[in-house]
């Protein structure tokens, strides 16, 4: 496993020390999981959900949801009624 590339996909900035430690531990876990390679799954459908799962549809009804105040109540940074983040696009100049 390429730990640097995978951590990048997962958006977790790992330290050099963490790369080594977690990399070794993940290699161990993948070695353990390799026992599944020996199982004959020819023609077996993947499960994805447990048995007894039922498909549910919701009624198309409007409900009262969060107020803007509630939705913003845990924002790490806000400006007026918006979540605020550092500038994403560069100034046109």
């Amino acid at each position: 496993m390429d730990i640097v590339a995978t951590a990048e996909i997962a958006r977790i900035a790992l330290s050099v020390d963490e790369r080594e430690r977690l990399g070794d531990q993940l290699a161990d876990i993948l070695r353990y999981a390799a026992q599944l390679m020996a199982v004959d799954v020819e023609g077996v459908e993947p499960a994805g959900q447990p048995i007894g799962g039922e498909d549910m549809l919701a009624f198309d009804e409007v409900e009262v949801g969060f107020s803007q105040k509630d939705a913003l109540s845990n924002a790490p940074q806000r400006e007026r009624n918006f979540f605020s983040v550092p500038q994403v696009l560069e100034d046109a100049s």
């Binding site: 999981a33 599944l36 499960a47 994805g48 048995i51």
Partner: peptide, 13 residues
């Protein structure tokens, strides 16, 4: 990995 695990999951079910 993931897809194979889901097939073995079917066998467990």
């Amino acid at each position: 990995y993931y897809s194979r695990a889901q097939r073995v999951r079917t066998l467990i079910c």
